[in-house]
Nucleic acid binder design. Sequence first.
RNA 1: GGAGAGUUGGCCGAGUGGUUGAUGGCACCGGUCUUGAAAACCGGCAUACCUUAACGGGUAUCGGGGGUUCGAAUCCCUCACUCUCCGCCA
Length: 430
Amino acid sequence: MLDLNFVRDNLPLVEEKLRLRGMNPAEVLKDFGEVDSQRRQAITATETLKAQRNRASEEIAKLKKSGQDASAQIAETKDLREQIQEKEKTSIELEARLQEILAGIPNLPHSSVPAGKSAEDNVEVRRWGTPPKFDFAPKPHWELGEQLGILDLERAVKLTGGRFAVYWDLGAKLERALANFMLDVHTREHGYTEVLPPYLVNSASMYGTGQLPKFASDLFRVLHGETDLWLVPTAEVPVTNLYRDEVLDAERLPVSLTAYTPCFRSEAGSYGKDVRGIIRQHQFQKVELVKFSRPEDSYDQLEKLTQAAEEILQKLGLPYRTMALCSADMGFSSAKTYDLEVWLPGQQVFREISSCSNFESFQARRANIRYRPEGKNKTEFVHTLNGSGLAVGRTWLAIIENYQQSDGSVLIPEALKPYMGVDRITAKKF
RNA sequence: GGAGAGUUGGCCGAGUGGUUGAUGGCACCGGUCUUGAAAACCGGCAUACCUUAACGGGUAUCGGGGGUUCGAAUCCCUCACUCUCCGCCA
């Protein structure tokens, strides 16, 4: 979330940035100014009463110490207590309303973010690779996967339901090979430290990265006896929250972490599009990249993080383009986002395979992640960044579609051969 | 699952109802000394919010929440977590 003082002092700027996002400032900010000033009045009123009570208590202590009678003062203070409770109730209510408004304000787009009204206005900043040429009609991955016997959506329905998948044999191995390959590249070549976090987290963690309170309906919840946990929708949640409520040493920054986890997303209402194949699943696996950075470095770090994700696509020989999301298409918490879109010949489209964002201090403020700049006693919020490096499920299908052959088999990209042990996937029945 | 012991500032660690926002140490910042550094010595050093033009004043915070009391780090309840022992288990 944004800083209260910043919002109060820069209201016109906040409104302008909200409009850039395609939002109506009046709807987002509601009666911010009114609630803010009422809250301050209420706080002043209660605190004046409290100060009065504290002075009286001190008086009582002195009287008692010198052996004098204090019953008059005690009676008076008793009365004060009721007044305080009443006033305090109002200020707590107003505080809650203000927090709710503040929590509902999205991050402000960075000045380098292209202005726009929809995804149509996203800007292509670069393109890599050449889409493969086929002397036959390339098939979509759901046909290829079924024919090869490596992707089984029917049995997944039997086991669990729609939007889940079963991978067989070299299909399962390809998923595992991709994860290992990505983690190896990021840890060996890009300086990331591998982390294996829990796949279930508590509500505080979901608040820390902003999934709660607004997006509960996109999540899977696990209630068991007294426990109330959530399945992670992305490794961003547990990994960013590793440093929740901590103060990091300045010399450790930037901290770069990578994690391979399943991701669970309920995403009610996003059906209709992408119903075929495994583009949009309730469970998919992803290698995530997370950075904690000094504020002044964070945009350099965003470029590095995006580059690291792009390198995976390059090593796999998958054509892609890098899009700078426009102001209207960015996520709630992001100040700037690059999407990587991989070419899918079976569908003749570019599809998102990675999303790399700088959240500046938006998440850090919420999750209370700070650092102490050298030579200063005061702590500051770090900037947090993350990106997919990459979504393994979508990389899987991109390989199937881009490396398909006229006989229906799929070649294994050079970089993956050591991980696969074979250089081609051919049809099998299971 | 059972029994017990804990949780205090960036870190360590005192403190069991009344100037304790909290002794002390480490770390950090400034200074003295030094050619420079180290050591030593002196001083400073929590956070958030309200208020003030400013100086300053005020409120809250000792794991979270609630309670007792004129007054709570200190007493009570509750939840979470950590540690030790027992049980169970891959």
